[in-house]
């Protein structure tokens, strides 16, 4: 299919750009780019859950923290370079999600959102009390001496780039699959979805576990880049706030929305704290104002509004109906007659 070919080609071009970027960009910009990519992955994961399964989580920081702590602790126990233990992060986050889904899925709407937040706060409080994981002061990355610091920033950037491209490609594949059709039906109307045979609860569970795993991996990478983890940073509710902001202004329930949201999010931050020379507080005010305006003018986010007005389709997941390739018998008879 031509669309798929174009997407595959764009993916390859992006991969090449990501591969080459560290040789061109300086470390500061590279670090910023890494941060953007990781937050984009997290936002995509939050969107998978909120946009496609209708579950708004205010406690997604708990999966970031679980992933990051899992990486720091496992890397310390095994005494290997943290990169090699990265796969532990999504697995731990996914297992935690699968377990807490049992009680949390009894709650709906706002109750679920708040329960997620409370759960994150409880785990955060335990972490601060527990000296085995460093308590309030946190942990340095125990195996940082094994890292080759000449290549550290480029490697982080490459990992973040690979994770982002991989996430978007995987989500795209998911959405064009029949499971994805089920997810989109639940996004649009869960009552109608269950009435035609979609197992809404199962869909929610899968989305929740995948979303947790992705955030766990992105969180592990993020704190690995800092070489240090502390509970106040890991369990910060702002993680969820940023993900939510990016998804809501960009376009909830679309794959392109979070990409646009991340560009606005970081663009605004760099503009306000850089050229405009405003303090960090003003930047948050700016974000809030934009969020309110977008919610009032385009409640489903900027991307869907742009798409409908300009007719552009980027990561098009719509299935077109199969048109009959041959002329229908009745029509040909009419022509013959």
């Amino acid at each position: 299919m031509p669309t798929r070919t174009i997407l595959a080609a764009s993916g390859l071009v992006l991969a090449a750009v990501i591969a080459g970027a560290p040789f061109v960009l300086n470390e500061g910009i590279l670090r910023l780019a890494t941060e953007c990519l990781l937050l984009l992955t997290m936002a995509q994961m939050w969107n998978l859950l909120a946009g496609y399964a209708g579950l708004v989580s205010l406690g997604h920081q708990v999966f970031i923290a679980f992933g990051a702590y899992a990486l720091f602790l496992t890397s310390g126990w095994l005494e290997v370079t943290p990169i090699w233990v990265l796969p532990v992060a999504p697995v731990v986050a996914a297992v935690v999600a699968a377990i807490i889904a049992v009680p949390l899925f009894r709650l709906r709407e706002a109750y679920f959102s708040i329960a997620m937040w409370v759960f994150a706060e409880i785990i955060g409080a335990f972490t601060m009390k527990s000296q085995a994981v460093g308590g309030t002061s946190g942990l340095p990355l125990p195996t940082s001496k094994l890292i080759d610091f000449d290549w550290f920033e480029p490697t982080m950037f490459w990992l973040a780039g690979a994770l982002t491209l991989g996430t978007i490609a995987a989500l795209y594949k998911l959405m064009i699959s029949s499971f994805g059709l089920g997810l989109m039906s639940v996004r649009d109307n869960d009552l109608a979805a269950m009435s035609v045979g979609v197992d809404v609860r199962h869909n929610r569970f899968v989305a929740f576990v995948l979303s947790a795993a992705g955030c766990g991996l992105a969180g592990a990478l993020s704190f690995m880049g800092n070489l240090y983890i502390a509970p106040l940073a890991a369990f910060d509710v702002n993680w969820s706030v940023y993900m939510m902001f990016i998804v809501i202004i960009g376009g909830i329930g679309t794959l392109e929305g979070p990409i646009l949201g991340v560009i606005i999010f970081f663009g605004l931050r760099e503009l306000m704290t850089g050229p405009l020379g405003l303090s960090g507080g003003w930047y948050l005010v700016g974000l809030g104002v934009i969020a309110v305006i977008v919610m009032m003018v385009a409640p489903r986010g900027i991307w869907p509004a742009l798409r409908d007005r300009l007719g552009i389709r980027l990561l098009d997941v719509q299935r077109t109906s199969p048109r009959p390739a041959v002329v229908l018998p009745s029509a040909s008879q009419q022509i013959a007659g």
Binding site: M184, A192, S195, G197, T320
Partner: peptide, 22 residues
């Protein structure tokens, strides 16, 4: 009516054909 508003007519019926009819 309870359509899936952001899906096409074809996709709406396809959800039922895929999940309901298997």
């Amino acid at each position: 009516p309870q359509p899936f508003p952001h899906l096409s007519v074809y996709e709406n019926a396809l959800v039922a054909a895929s999940y309901g009819a298997g």
